[in-house]
């Protein structure tokens, strides 16, 4: 049976230990990819794996990537919400891997909203 190379895990344990305090502390940003059936069928998994690749490539340790269910706007999937500390959340729609790369570089890392891909700023409320 093929197994993960534990020896390699040993090598990265030290590298990880150096940055884990930062990682487990307060994150600077959170990106939520909407992973309902509609999102998955429209390509949300590619959006998520692209984000994770960007985190790997740029060695970013203070951004949390997470998922949620259907946001109720199935026709605009794939969707993602970017939240920076002390800023209102921004919902992005009709995403592609290229668009999310730009959003990651501009909004998540530099704080500039990518207006052409954004649907709305702020949270929904129900009354």
């Amino acid at each position: 049976m093929k197994k993960l190379k534990i020896g390699d895990l040993e090598k990265i344990r030290e590298k990880v230990a150096k940055t884990r305090v930062l990682r487990e502390g307060k994150a600077r940003a959170r990106v939520t990819v909407h992973m309902g059936t509609c999102g998955i069928a429209a390509g949300a998994r590619d959006i998520l794996t692209t984000l994770m690749s960007e985190i790997e490539k740029k060695k970013v340790t203070d951004v949390i990537i997470t998922t949620s269910g259907c946001a109720g706007l199935c026709s605009r999937e794939p969707m993602a919400t970017v939240e920076l500390v002390d800023k209102p959340p921004v919902k992005y729609v009709d995403l592609t891997p290229e668009k999310i790369k730009k959003i990651f570089a501009e909004h998540v890392l530099k704080g500039n909203i990518v207006k052409e891909y954004a649907l709305a700023v702020g949270s929904e409320t129900t009354h």
């Binding site: 990880v16 230990a17 940055t19 994770m52 985190i55 790997e56 340790t61 990537i65």
Partner: peptide, 18 residues
């Protein structure tokens, strides 16, 4: 894997890459 690395989560860039 979490127990081996002593981590609560596996979303560190080095761990994801591995």
């Amino acid at each position: 894997i979490r127990r081996y690395l002593g981590l609560r989560q596996l979303n560190h860039p080095e761990v994801l890459k591995f």
